[in-house]
Design a binder for these strands. Structure first.
Lengths: 107, 107
DNA sequence: TTTTATTATCGTAATATTGCAATATTAAAA
DNA sequence: TTTTAATATTGCAATATTACGATAATAAAA
């Protein structure tokens, strides 16, 4: 079928998986790292920096925004994206909580 | 085109994204949580527990194995899966390192 | 040895994702 | 106002993922 059966999982499981999923693409990892390495906001140096078309970068930015990881601010005719620190920390906690709670047993 | 351009990213970025990607499905999150909640190894109670077909569960287990997160042991006619604690901790560190390194600037 | 139970693999259908060219949209600059 | 630059959106082709039935493989039980 091809469609994920989200109904059979809890909201927490779906949310967590969604966060993992959005982070699960090298372009998006790369975008986050690049933004963080700059001292100022990044606009679309990203297109030059990462070797993907403008439309593709824009799409990846959209997905990062969808989980609240990026703030975008209009700055003249360009966009200034930066990491939403509050959300960033929140997600880090969420993942650590998952890792700490899901402990191993057996074998 | 539909194919991820892994060549333009570093190995580290690709590895990290791959880990995120494997964790980015609610069934796999759920499988990990279920295995961890049992005191003994799980075999295919998973099929009964999670509402997915046996073939589908088997496929998800395979992906979790692909990043070294699960150990499988033959136990009679069933399989006993458990979390590879060493790898688990390793991945948790890797993710935390990413989160800590990728700090915010700007805005 | 035959049956039964458990798991893995194969083939396939449905859907999602990735990537890009083309085209909007927006706002500054001329 | 027209042009220009930056970003977003649309439409599409290629590929990947999800899910499952059918079937193979394996090992215990009968």
């Amino acid at each position: 079928m091809g469609i994920t059966k989200t109904q059979i999982f809890t909201d927490k499981q779906n949310d967590l998986a969604q966060v993992f999923k959005v982070l699960g693409h090298p372009a998006r990892v790369s975008i986050l790292q690049y933004i963080s390495n700059q001292n100022a906001c990044i606009c679309n140096d990203l297109v030059a920096e990462i070797g993907l078309a403008q439309a593709t970068i824009s799409q990846h930015l959209k997905e990062l925004k969808s989980i609240g990881l990026l703030n975008g601010e209009v700055e003249g005719k360009s966009m200034c994206y930066c990491i939403n620190v509050k959300r960033w920390t929140e997600i880090q906690s969420q993942l650590n909580s998952f890792f700490n709670t899901t402990k191993s047993n057996c074998c």
